[in-house]
């Protein structure tokens, strides 16, 4: 019977631990909570905005990154306060009642390892490299990394370069960070990422596209071709369909103060 008692004691200890964890976590207070889900390209920017906002507001902003499509679906299903998308919404998505508001613009940079001698790539070379695996930049660039087929970044990239299926030698990485990490340290591999993610990473550099450098000036001047919008997905009913806390935060990210944060993070303010 002694042993049986011990088993019971262990079970009781487990239960007590659960309860204490639950109790410990339950006393978090009545802070307002905002949930934002969606595009992994927008997430770093949204985190920076949330960090700035939290400095003088008592609010919990939970940002869950997945994909543009998931962010839109979550908004449609009421699983978040608002969604993030790195592409414009399709007509079909708009027909369900959600709406999109452009937060800012983002360039897509073509990147290589910082040790690479490649500095410029042409549109035709990009097309040939991604669709047939043909070497580019005088044979310097022989391998390419893309994003997975549902990515908003890839959608935009493929549409711009009129690509459909990638050559079998092209890697597909799930996220922006994976593309960067695959390319760091190589000299012969090219990939494409959000321009905002370029800053702060030492092992990579952007190459020019058809002789135009990927810089904020060129993007603003309209010279650099690869530019796409970051979109906030609002639920049915627009801004007034959201909770008060979410409305306040939404008003903040659309304000001039927030545009300063956006510019300083390397994205292109639209105001």
């Amino acid at each position: 019977m002694k042993r049986f008692g011990k088993v019971v004691a262990v079970a009781a200890a487990c239960a007590a631990l659960t309860c204490s964890v639950a109790a410990f976590t339950a006393c978090g207070g009545n802070t307002d909570s905002i949930t934002i889900t969606g595009s992994s390209s927008v997430t770093p920017l949204m985190e920076a905005l949330a960090a700035a906002y939290e400095e003088d507001h008592d609010v919990r902003i939970t940002i869950s990154q997945s994909s543009s499509g998931a962010g839109i679906t979550d908004t449609q299903g009421g699983n978040n306060d608002f969604g993030m998308s790195s592409r414009a919404l399709t007509d079909e998505e708009l027909s369900s009642g959600v709406t999109g508001e452009t937060l800012c613009q983002d360039g897509i940079a073509l990147i290589v390892g910082s040790g690479s001698s490649a500095t410029n790539i042409t549109t035709d070379e990009v097309k040939a490299l991604y669709s047939n695996g043909t070497a580019a930049c005088d044979g310097v660039i022989t391998a390419a990394v893309g994003r997975d087929s549902g990515s908003g970044t890839r959608d935009f990239f493929d549409e711009h370069f009129e690509l459909s299926t990638y050559a079998s030698s092209v890697d597909s990485q799930a996220e922006t960070g994976n593309v960067i990490q695959t390319i760091i340290g190589t000299t012969n591999t090219i990939g494409y990422i959000s321009y905002g993610s370029l800053a702060g990473n030492n092992g990579i550099k952007a190459v020019s596209l058809d002789g135009v450098e990927c810089t904020v000036e060129n993007i603003l001047a309209g010279d650099y071709a690869l530019v796409r919008p970051f979109v906030i997905v609002l639920p049915e009913g627009g801004v007034s369909g959201m909770s008060q806390a979410a409305q306040d935060f939404y008003n903040y990210i659309m304000s001039d103060d927030a545009q300063e944060v956006i510019s300083s993070e390397g994205y292109i303010s639209i105001k």
């Binding site: 770093p44 960070g177 702060g200």
Partner: peptide, 12 residues
Amino acid sequence: WRLMSNGMAEDM
């Protein structure tokens, strides 16, 4: 997983 897919050097 999340940190390594974020893309920033400090996240890695």
